[in-house]
Amino acid sequence: MNSGIYSALSGNIAAMKRLDVLSNNLANVNTPGFKKDRMTFESLLQAAGKVPQAGTTDAPVYSETAFFTDHSRGSVSQTGNTFDLAIDGDGFFVVNTPEGKAYTRQGNFKLDATGKLVTADGYEVSGGGPIVINGSRVEINARGEILVDGSPVGTLEVVDFPKPYALQKNGNALFVPTDPQAVPQPVQGEPVRQGYLELSNVSAIQEMVQLIETQRFFEMCSKAVKAYDDMAGKAANEVGKI
C-alpha cells in the first residue's frame, strides 16, 4: 500500500479525536466550573525515528495524541443565590463521593432533603464532614465559615495542589489526583465568594472556529485517502491489462 495513505488515515483519526474533544467542550459551555480539554499531536517516525527509503511501502509517520485539561479560570458571575459559591484565585472545593474525595470549582451547591449541602450531582460538600444547614439565614464568609442564624455549623474545605496540576477528570466538573497519594494543601486567605459562580472557561466562538477548521482538515484527509485508493485501483487495472 502506498505509504502516503497512512499519513492521510492518521490525519483522519486525529481529526476525529479532536472533534470529540471540541464537541464535549461546546456541550459544556454553560456548565459552571467546567474546564475545557485540549489535545496535542506529535508525528512520530516509524522504525526508531528513521525515515523510510524512497520506494518502500513502510508507513512513514503516525500521529500520537495526548489529552490535557486547561485549568484557566472561567469568568465569575454574580447570582445572589445563597448557595452559589466561587473561589477567588486558585483552589478547589472538596467533595465526598462514593469513590472517595474529589475536587471541584463548580460551586452551584444546594440542600438535599435532609438539609445537607451537596453539589448539583448530589455529592456531599465537605467541611471536614457533612455540612447540615437547618435555619432561615445562611451566611458564608470569605474564609468559608458557614453561619446559620448567626451560629457556626461548619467550614468549607478549600484546597489546592502543586502546579502544573496532575489531575484527571471524574465527570465534567470533578477532579481526582492522578497520584492517589497526593496530599492537597489548604488554601490560605479568604478565597470564598458567596452569591457568585465561576462559569465554564469555554469560549463558544473559539471552539466553533476550531471545530470548523478540524472538520475541513478531516475532509481534506478523506479526499487524500480516496485519491490514493483511486490511484491504487487504477494501477491494478492497468497492470492487469498488460
Rank of each mutant, 00 (worst) to 15 (best):
N172G: 14
Y103E: 02
M39D: 02
N172C: 08
T57M: 15
K50N: 12
Q210R: 06
I13V: 12
Q46I: 14
G127E: 03
G4D: 11
F175N: 01
G240C: 09
D88C: 01
Y62S: 07
A47Y: 04
P180K: 08
A173I: 11
V94E: 04
I131F: 07
E64Q: 08
G11N: 03
I205S: 05
S200F: 08
Q215I: 06
G100Y: 02
A120Q: 14
P186V: 11
A142W: 02
T69I: 00
A102G: 00
V76D: 01
F41N: 05
A48N: 14
S200K: 12
S3N: 08
Y6L: 05
G233S: 14
F34C: 00
A66S: 10
E238P: 02
S136W: 04
D58R: 09
A113W: 02
T119P: 01
G55Q: 04
N108T: 05
S7P: 00
T31C: 04
Y196D: 10
S23W: 15
E238C: 00
G122P: 08
K50Q: 08
P32V: 07
R73Q: 15
F67E: 00
P152C: 00
D20M: 10
Q194P: 04
N134K: 12
G115F: 06
M16I: 06
T214Q: 14
P152G: 01
G240N: 15
I133E: 00
P130V: 00
G233M: 13
D121Y: 07
N170M: 12
V138L: 10
S203N: 13
Q168R: 10
Y123I: 02
G107N: 03
N28E: 08
I242K: 13
G55D: 01
D58S: 15
G144Q: 09
G100N: 03
S10W: 05
S63A: 14
I131C: 11
N30A: 15
I140H: 09
P191Y: 05
G154L: 04
D112R: 04
S222P: 07
S126P: 01
Q78E: 15
D58E: 11
F217M: 13
V148P: 09
A27K: 07
S151E: 07
T104S: 09
N28G: 08
D88S: 05
N237V: 13
N170G: 04
L9M: 14
R137Q: 12
A236K: 12
V95W: 03
C221K: 07
D112I: 03
A54L: 11
M16W: 03
V225Y: 03
N237Q: 08
V51A: 12
K241G: 05
Q215G: 08
E207L: 11
D121W: 06
D84F: 10
K241V: 09
Q106D: 07
E207P: 15
